[in-house]
Amino acid sequence: MLEPDIQQNNGSEGLAVYDVPYMTRTRDLYRAQGYEQDYRWAHFEDTPFTELKKPLSESRIAVITTAMPDTETGRSQRQVYSSNCDPIPESLYTDELSWDKKATHTKDVASFLPLNQLNQLKAAGRIASIAEQFHSVPTDYSQRNTMEKDGPDILKRCQEDNVDIALLVPL
């Protein structure tokens, strides 16, 4: 049976295809685990917007992921990390993230960190360059941590890398 607040997927036929209501599912999961207070997802009425300052073909891009480095430190300490884009890491640490561990896997890094794809697009002239390092940002129960610590930290790293645009990929 479908949840009452599902968002119907455009173009779908019947009820087999619908957008999974993750906020509702998470709320129900938290409740089932005995948490008395529902998690409040970040919500804003206004949204910033910045136009591209130069064509994509002249732009330098940053890549940001929620996966952590697959190192002893990355596996044990949740914080912002910067890792080299070249060579592309063969694995990243994703065990603590809320992805669908029954339906899929994260063994292919390119399925969630598009460095291979961006290298091809750079070779084709679609973008000018890729920042030397990509950044890992931890998902955090505390939105304050993300807004007051990680956001400014990532911005600083992007500015130091002289990037023009950013591609963000949460798992």
């Binding site: 917007f49 910045t50 929620t66 956001g151 023009d164 645009i165 591609l167 949460p170």
Partner: peptide, 16 residues
């Protein structure tokens, strides 16, 4: 991650 995108965008870096 949405919060990070908003922060970058508000500070002059277009995001997707």
């Amino acid at each position: 991650m949405s919060l990070i995108a908003r922060h970058l965008e508000a500070n002059g870096i277009p995001t997707v």
